[in-house]
Amino acid sequence: MSRIDYSVWDHIEVSDDEDATHPNVNTASLFRWRHQARVERTEAFRKKGAELEEALAESKHELTRAHEKAGELAAGSSKARDDIERLKREEREWEEKVAAHRREEKKTPWNADTLCRGGFSKIAVINDVKTESVGEETETFMSFEKRYEKDVKRFAAMRSWDDSEEYLSDNPHLLCAETFNLLMMMCVDLEVLKKRESLEQTAHQAVVMRFISRLAKALKVDPRACFRRFFSKMKAADQRQLDTFADELECFKEEVRSAAKSPAWKAMDEAQRELEKEEERLEVFESLPEEMQRCFDRKDVRMLQEVIGRMEPAEARAHMKRCVKAGFWVPGAKVDGGDDDGGSDKEEDDA
């Protein structure tokens, strides 16, 4: 007995007598209209399924958030229990709707568009898959930061849904995890500096990136393929969506405040500041005349005084002022057993 299920062939929207039409009917136009109507029905059905899947994913996320909030509140909070029960009911309702839509999809008759589809509609080139180490991830992020930091800062300043959507459309390379991570770091820096207004704006844009990432994960697509759907929902002023976004924004700002207080961040911030100072020192050193560079390399104060003496006074003052600022020269320091380097001090004093 055959175990192959041939029932899928019982309902196919393909007629053997489609060529037989009334002489007064334009056959090509008729078939074209029928095909267009069928394509529109299929697209509407597919869009409905995607919206149901998205709603189910959002419901699961809200339920998870409710459990987290319940853990933060006092044990046995009646409001927290009521919210969790309500969200569980909503989740079951969405699951039933998704299941019903999938059953309906299986019953949909095949047609000329769905009967024959390529088995390989896309090509995936897979190289040796390697899990990035922490060092490699850091290197990737630093490379992204160096290349696109200005673009991310411009995005952080966007204050409307339309502007943000248009900017991401023009800069699709920002639709990635590195953008969110960079915005997160910017937020922590702003929290440390107590710049509340700038923090509020940057945090808002970071949460935008987080929502787009979650939507892409729920739909199993690239963020570039679904970011417009997120903005459409936000611009439609769906109160439930806006409330969810506002709650997420508050949670994110709390994450930022916690990160800013952590010893790890303080140590990293100090290391970053020291690295920036070293880069500034190197930049100043490389811009000095070669004779002055040799003086600092050899730590020869008398040679430095001679080199400065041969320069124009204004040029000497400018160079020494930059050296003092970079930490190469300390005015009034004692050298050679207590002798004061008066000549060089004079140049700095004149500056």
Rank of each mutant, 00 (worst) to 15 (best):
Q205G: 06
V125S: 10
K220H: 13
S143N: 12
K107T: 10
I123E: 07
A112I: 03
R159W: 05
E105R: 14
S169T: 15
T138K: 11
T140H: 13
C187Q: 00
M185R: 15
E166V: 07
K217P: 00
R102F: 02
K106T: 10
T131V: 13
E200S: 11
L175W: 07
V208C: 12
F211K: 11
R117D: 02
A156P: 01
T108P: 01
N181V: 06
V188G: 01
W94L: 06
M158F: 12
A218T: 08
V188H: 03
K217E: 13
A203Q: 09
A216Y: 09
G119T: 04
L183F: 01
R159A: 15
A156L: 02
P172T: 08
H173N: 04
L175N: 04
E178S: 05
K122H: 05
E105P: 01
D163L: 06
T179D: 03
V125D: 10
V207F: 07
V207P: 00
P109G: 03
A216W: 05
L215P: 04
R159L: 12
V207R: 01
K106L: 15
V125G: 05
E132H: 15
D128L: 13
S143T: 15
H101F: 06
K146S: 15
L193Q: 15
I126V: 13
T140V: 12
F155C: 07
M209Y: 09
E191N: 10
F180V: 01
R92Q: 13
A218G: 14
Y148W: 11
A216I: 03
E178A: 07
E178V: 00
V192L: 13
S133V: 04
V98P: 00
E149S: 14
E104S: 09
T108M: 14
M185G: 13
E191S: 15
R214F: 03
T202S: 14
V208W: 09
R154E: 13
A100F: 02
E105N: 10
K150G: 03
N111Q: 00
V207I: 11
L174Y: 02
V134M: 06
L190E: 01
V152E: 02
Y148V: 03
E191T: 08
H101A: 14
K153G: 03
K88Y: 02
E91T: 11
A157C: 12
L174V: 00
K195H: 14
E191Y: 07
L193R: 15
S143P: 01
S160K: 06
N127W: 05
L168N: 08
R103M: 07
K217Y: 05
V125F: 12
K107V: 04
E90Q: 14
F180H: 09
F120W: 05
C187H: 01
E104Q: 07
S164V: 01
K220D: 14
R103V: 05
G135H: 01
K107P: 00
